[in-house]
């Protein structure tokens, strides 16, 4: 721009270019003002410890857009099911072959039952611990997913404060741990998935009862889902071990919820610690029906699934 400064007087006389210039030039002052406004917002949101000053704004936008997202998701759902109708004989044959393979694998596992009995006892203990909590599940469906461009792995579910859902509640599905509730509006809630790089869950290795921290790796691929670091550096986690939440009754994650199985173990000489890759039980790219763990008997706008499997 500055290089043409000398020609300014001559250019001015050319009406065509003058008109073009006046229409084409975005106002720098407005750009600077908006950029500063954005940076102010970022500063406000980052500096607020715990409760951000923007939370009321998030809530208002959520109240307005949440029902719209739920409505569109409900309208779209029948169409996303269409591909399943066109499965060919070849697909079904493939499925039969896969099922036969997994059946053989399961039979092999049953034959090894004696070897695994020791482990099973501990799992049983953990499962009864979960039942003792007496929590109920609020059923909900995933209505919106955050995009990868936004870098955080969050989803919106169609159950909110009216259904008895509140912040920091544990979200599970029939496979295992999904995440925890970040914030709620009346009819929707935002859930942080455990694969989010910012998510840290207290985990416990099923066979050795060693505790550690499970962090998300920021990838939707199931193989590279989660990272486990044990608190005790000396203990080596075993492959194919199950990792469950360690949690507490009051904290964000309820105890005894299965997270995944250990697929690979790396020992880092420099940090003198063990890192294990945990394959989550939940397929996060195909998340649909989930349950939010709420205290048994809490008021809700829908039927709750109680710990013993009954609907109420």
């Amino acid at each position: 721009m500055g290089a043409f400064g000398g020609h300014d007087g001559r250019e001015r006389r050319w009406r065509g270019l003058d008109r073009l210039e006046s229409r084409n030039r975005p106002p720098r002052s407005l750009l600077v003002a908006l950029v500063l406004a954005s940076i102010t917002l970022v500063t406000l949101d980052v500096s607020g410890d715990g409760a951000s000053p923007l939370d009321p704004a998030r809530r208002v936008v959520g109240e307005a857009l949440g029902p719209a997202e739920a409505g569109v998701a409900a309208a779209v759902r029948p169409f996303t099911a269409v591909p399943a109708w066109f499965r060919s004989k070849g697909d079904l044959a493939d499925q039969v072959r896969d099922l036969e393979a997994s059946n053989a694998e399961l039979r092999g596992q049953v034959e090894l039952a004696g070897f695994d009995r020791n482990r099973l006892e501990q799992y049983d203990g953990l499962t009864t611990a979960a039942e003792d909590l007496g929590s109920a599940l609020v059923p909900a469906r995933v209505v919106a997913l955050g995009s990868r461009q936004s870098q955080s792995f969050t989803v919106t579910i169609d159950a909110g404060s009216e259904a008895g859902v509140g912040p920091d509640m544990t979200v599970v599905n029939n496979d295992g741990l999904v995440g925890r509730v970040l914030r709620v509006t009346r009819s929707t809630a935002t859930v942080l998935l455990v694969i989010d790089p910012d998510s840290t869950v207290g985990g416990r290795v099923g066979s050795s009862m060693e505790i550690g921290f499970v962090t998300g790796s920021g990838s939707l691929r199931q193989e590279s889902g989660l990272d486990l670091r044990l608190v005790d550096d000396a203990s080596v986690p075993a492959r194919d071990d199950t990792v469950v939440t360690w949690g507490s009754a009051t904290g964000p994650y309820a105890p005894g919820v299965p997270i995944g199985t250990i697929t690979e173990v790396y020992s880092s000489l420099r940090e003198a610690s063990q890192r294990a890759v945990v394959k989550p039980f939940v397929d996060f790219s195909a998340l649909d029906v989930v349950g939010v763990m709420v205290p048994s008997g809490s008021p809700s706008d829908r039927a709750l699934v109680e710990a013993d499997g009954t609907l109420r």
């Binding site: 954005s38 949101d45 959520g62 955050g146 935002t190 942080l192």
Partner: peptide, 19 residues
């Protein structure tokens, strides 16, 4: 930045889309 599934620091998309 503010609509439900988002959980990043608000203002980041505002800055990116303004520019």
């Amino acid at each position: 930045d503010l609509a439900p599934p988002a959980d990043h620091v608000a203002g980041r998309w505002a800055l990116a889309l303004t520019i």
